[in-house]
Design a protein around this nucleic acid. Structure first.
Lengths: 305, 305
DNA sequence: CGACCTTCATAACCAGTAGTTATGGAATGA
DNA sequence: TCATTCCATAACTACTGGTTATGAAGGTCG
């Protein structure tokens, strides 16, 4: 039994007429005769009673007809369904990002993509770069915005740096903190530290140890929101992405580095995903548009790579 | 897109392995590769990500898989459905019969057939030969047990006489009626007549007119049950099939004809159906078994033809 | 009653393809 | 590094979907 034979069968059953059905299905009458006969052989029974004045369905034909129609519909549905996926009308992208990116860059990017491809589900996971990297490798995420370079080895992942983000020292707006600091100026200054897992925690500790001292920890273990609240409350300062400051009037930012030949304190944001061919088209498209979107997002605190 | 390709696709999707799927589906691995590729071309998208350690579904493949499985199931269902019809496991036979046959011969025949083919629905219509003949011609019935010869012309019907049924004069058991009568003896005898449409009405009138007189009508217009009740009540006698008498102890039967060279009054029961090839197999089978059944039903009052 | 028409079946043929065997190339694992 | 595994490719065969041309069987109309 073959699909096209079912199509022919339905056509003949509806037209009750081989010649007309042949025209409607765009084939020739002899072929139709042969194909129907072949179908009848495959099923082991007559489907039509041929008469010179039209044809009639046998009871076997009547039994087959509704099934044949359903099969044809289902085939069309299957094709459309596949086409929807490939044409980005449906699908799912699981996006991971660090907390600060989730609050800063990601929403606008997601909004833009969703506007273009409303049929594609977007699932966001917030986490540290390490966790997200593992999620990517093991297939729980499709793409992530992380801090580069990756700490854990991940040979199957492709990492594309897109932005360099300025880090600043956040302090209470009324605090007596200079607008410009060198890294070394952090020594002895009470700092609010992120909890284990935040990239900013590691970046801060590394910057201090690179300059030969350990940070003075005022309080430890917070999420992004909590840390900023602690700073506002005057418990200390914190090293945070520059872009979180503008929306917090109770905070002031001091640049870190960028003077006297000392490089500014920055971190690199990269788009990371599994290597090529296994990527669903929806993900490929998302990665492309995310890259474009972020590359076109410039500001003094977000330098394109 | 082709049917067998969907089968291959599902096999590969389940095995995640071309070579194994080839074994399971009973083909060779190169063919499987080619067919899947052909399917992918037909759909315009990759379905699998081929890797040396097995294969993975693409998102398009994942979209296709449930549809493909449903289609395969539906095709199997269609085949089984057709096969059920041809193998008499399902179907419907619409049977017509005259009232006396419905009460006499038919029940045992239906019971026998139903025992052999319990999946086949049996629909019984009771009516006069004329009405049933029209119902047959116009497709509302599949087969009927009628009184032959047919009164109305019906070129598309096949009529097979199977039994000759003795007609007798039914009278009250205590009435003074001889056991044997000639047709001519009916003259002047009050008769209970069936309503218009009953074959027995026509048979009775014809028998009388053939002998040059009109019947004396005592009361008119009854169904089989009513007519017999009227006779029991002493309103008159009635010409009825011999086989209705035994179950009515209040009635006695007088033979009609069959003496002195006068032929016995009989009527011929025939199986009638539309001519051959358009007959559903269930009907063909029913006709065959009905014929066998009736042919083997002999009695003094029911002579085989 | 015969000529014509309609309708489906058959014959002969071509092209494309499902399926085969043999082989190659890439990645994995010992 | 070598053997193994696994999928892809090549070359070939057999079949079949599709074509045109023709035939056979029933109707229809003059």
């Amino acid at each position: 039994m073959q699909f096209h034979q079912l199509g022919y069968f339905v056509a003949v059953a509806r037209a009750r007429h081989f010649t007309r059905a042949a025209e409607e299905t765009g084939t020739t009458q002899p072929n139709l005769s042969k194909q129907i006969r072949s179908l009848e052989n495959a099923l082991g029974t007559q489907l039509f009673v041929r008469g010179p004045s039209g044809v009639e369905l046998t009871s076997a034909g009547e039994a087959l007809l509704p099934h044949a129609e359903r099969i044809l519909i289902e085939v069309a549905t299957a094709e459309r369904s596949v086409h929807e996926v490939t044409s980005l009308r449906r699908g799912r992208v699981r996006v991971g990002a660090t907390p600060s990116i989730c609050e800063g860059l990601l929403p606008a990017a997601l909004t833009a993509f969703h506007g273009q491809h409303p049929g594609i589900e977007l699932e966001v996971s917030e986490g540290s770069s390490g966790v997200l990297t593992r999620d990517l490798s093991e297939g729980r995420l499709d793409v992530a915005l992380l801090i580069a370079p990756l700490r854990v080895a991940a040979p199957d992942l492709v990492s594309t740096p897109v932005l360099r983000e300025r880090l600043v020292l956040a302090s209470p707006a009324d605090a007596d903190v200079p607008d410009q600091l060198r890294i070394a100026d952090l020594q002895g200054r009470p700092l609010v530290m992120f909890r284990e897992g935040y990239d900013l925690r590691d970046v801060t500790r590394r910057a201090c140890s690179d300059h030969g001292f350990s940070p003075t920890v005022a309080i430890e273990g917070g999420e992004m929101g909590g840390v900023l609240r602690f700073v506002e409350a005057g418990l200390g300062s914190a090293v945070v992405p520059a872009m979180v400051i503008p929306s917090r009037p109770a905070l002031k930012a001091s640049t870190l580095g960028g003077t006297q030949g000392e490089p500014p304190l920055e971190r690199t944001i990269a788009i990371v995903h599994r290597s090529q061919e296994t990527l669903p088209l929806a993900v490929q498209s998302f990665v492309e548009e995310l890259t474009d979107h972020l590359r076109s997002t410039g500001s003094p605190d977000l330098r394109q790579v």
